[in-house]
Design a protein around this nucleic acid. Structure first.
Lengths: 213, 213, 213, 213
DNA sequence: TATGAATGAGGTTTCATTCAT
DNA sequence: GATGAATGAAACCTCATTCAT
């Protein structure tokens, strides 16, 4: 049976790419469910439906697979986030912050445990640490660009921009993370609301004052 | 008399207690430097200057040692923190928040990596998760008692107390943690200042309004 | 597809089967020579000419290997023994008993120590006990079918068939076993002859009486 | 408080002997319950209520303890059995056999597992094997003396005395053992009856013939 | 490329025995 | 004598990785 060519070119993955994808998927699933150290390469291969040998044909070792997964995960993350600055001044700032937080929260639905695993492994692995640093810098640059715009427009209350960027980044990231991982019953909407409030009050001059002026 | 092996032998005598302390110290050091999975029992024993057999006489296994270290660490933490409520209404609230953050930061100087390790291991280990939950609840109770006092005194701006407690806890904890672990050059004083500002603006009605009134 | 680890990997391919056979052979040899507790897994692997890892790929643990050896041994045993009943009434009964004993003795030449080891391990291991019970029942059923035939033909002297079955089984089994293990010089032919006499006199009505009738 | 000397001298064991007895008792209990290899010296010491150090003060090693236990057990056995020959010719022979079997069965109530353990350990331990051989010889001598008496009195049917002795010893010993260890419901009285019948019919000329004469 | 059996270093844990007190 | 903490050789078992097919 010859391959049925359809009129529209279907960009099928080559067999090889497919295999690699299967391993990535299986790795993500297992690292996520059981953690890096609790998952072994035979298991990953089996879950991917390939032989261990193939695993090692595509990935130098287990760590390399993990790093590739991290990369995929972060690319996905930045694809979501990278809302470049618009020139709007009159835009509702609270809404912007809120949207930013929401999209971060969205991200964490993809593979929240990877984030955790990553931070853990970073502390004994320089390669992973380097990747994280790189991404942190990208995130900080993004936040900074927001703050600078607001500063230019006279809305910003904070003085120490660099520190504010850090604080913003960590606070959002970790509260979202806690939200996803808390065993306790937590209401997501309420947490995001309060978080938004906190950041707005911290960053911006109070609306009331303006109005009263 | 049946053997009745408890998870951990609990020594009264001095020599024995000393050995246990040595193992605890060595474990703390190594887990901290290289992480749980990168440290093995022989190594711990050697670092403690005892035979492996002694390790297993005092701790059922590596995990049990880790849990005991966590407990020691947390007890220390609570010894620092538990500043009971005073009845003062006129006290400087910013100063109180600042002090709270500072003491938390202090704590992290003891064994910051243990905290990280802990959260990591929790995600595949129910025993460790249980301990963390317990302590989180204690911390939340403490924060809540502060907020309720401020609420009673009419200083509090937030409505959703429960969520605010969570937000407060996570935000302080994680920013301090990030502070200690950031590879980048970070100025501790500045971070703590901004963090304090953020939390005050979030929690309290603005002073200016009062003054203007 | 979940891992679904069966206790023992069941190989189809030739190389793999060969390896398993080698391990079984080495295990049989060593358990036989030195006993279960005096033999360790590294040793077995080395004797089989494979790595320890392979040992554990094929057998969950040492006990599992032992159980498989038992099974092989017993299958062999039953292949020898299962002489189904014929309808002959006039057949020499002494000759039948003699043949039965001889074939049991034959069996014990295969791996006599395994039998001993087995009984020993049974007393602390339920799995092994279960296997032994199963085989005992099979053996008892076989003996019973002989006795019932002789009873029907009017040759049987004993009344309490169930007890006789037990007595017969144990007596043959253990005397053969003792024969094989006695350090003293024992003449096999003489023991088997006396054993045959004893069982015939116990089971059957005396020929002389018949003749005199 | 000075020791209260009673009028009658109470032959109290010295403290030292008492300790040794405790270890022997604990060893017997544990070897019996869990087997030699499944019992460790610390456990025995604890069960005996003494320190491990004391264990090794009284017994060179674990095996030595086992051998001492064996000896105690066998002495007890021979104290029961050694019914010296009487000169009686008219005594009921079946009753004698029956009594012999019964007393053997009695013995097995003391520490039946020791017997099993013993045979097992013998096969890798020469010292234990030597002891067993010694006792077997004693038992055989005893049985032989019975048979010779019956032979002299014209009651014996068997010709091959040496082999008969062996057969008798093994058959009684192992059937009693099986009786004690069978997991199945077995009626002790019935087994002992049949066993007695079997041995009588094997050994003795039939009564009926005599009577009819 | 794909396969999966085979490898063996290395980690975990036990326990018979010693020895300082 | 008694104690029991300490020892460390040796057993058990896992799993990242290789390599012959």
């Amino acid at each position: 049976m010859p391959p049925k060519r359809s009129a529209t070119r279907e960009p099928r993955q080559t067999r090889s790419m497919q295999t690699k994808q299967q391993i990535l998927a299986a790795g993500t699933k297992l690292f996520t469910e059981k953690g890096f150290h609790q998952t072994n390469s035979n298991e990953i291969a089996k879950a991917a439906g390939v032989a261990v040998g193939s695993f090692y044909a595509y990935f130098k070792d287990k760590k390399t697979l993990f790093i590739e997964i991290m990369k995929v995960h972060y690319e996905e993350q930045f694809r979501f986030i990278e809302l470049p600055e618009e020139n709007l001044a009159g835009v509702d700032r609270r809404a912007m912050i809120h949207r930013l937080i929401k999209s971060l929260a969205e991200l964490h639905n993809i593979a929240p445990e990877i984030h955790q695993e990553q931070y853990y492994l970073a502390h004994t692995d320089a390669d992973i640490q380097a990747l994280i640093d790189e991404w942190d810098q990208a995130a900080h640059a993004l936040i900074l660009s927001y703050l600078q715009r607001w500063l230019a427009d006279g809305y910003l209350r904070v003085k120490d921009l660099d520190t504010a960027v850090r604080l913003f980044g960590t606070t959002v990231e970790e509260n979202i993370h806690a939200l996803k991982f808390s065993k306790a019953e937590v209401n997501e909407t309420r947490v995001i609301n309060e978080l938004t409030d906190m950041l707005c009050r911290y960053l911006f001059v109070e609306e009331k004052n303006k109005k009263s002026a």
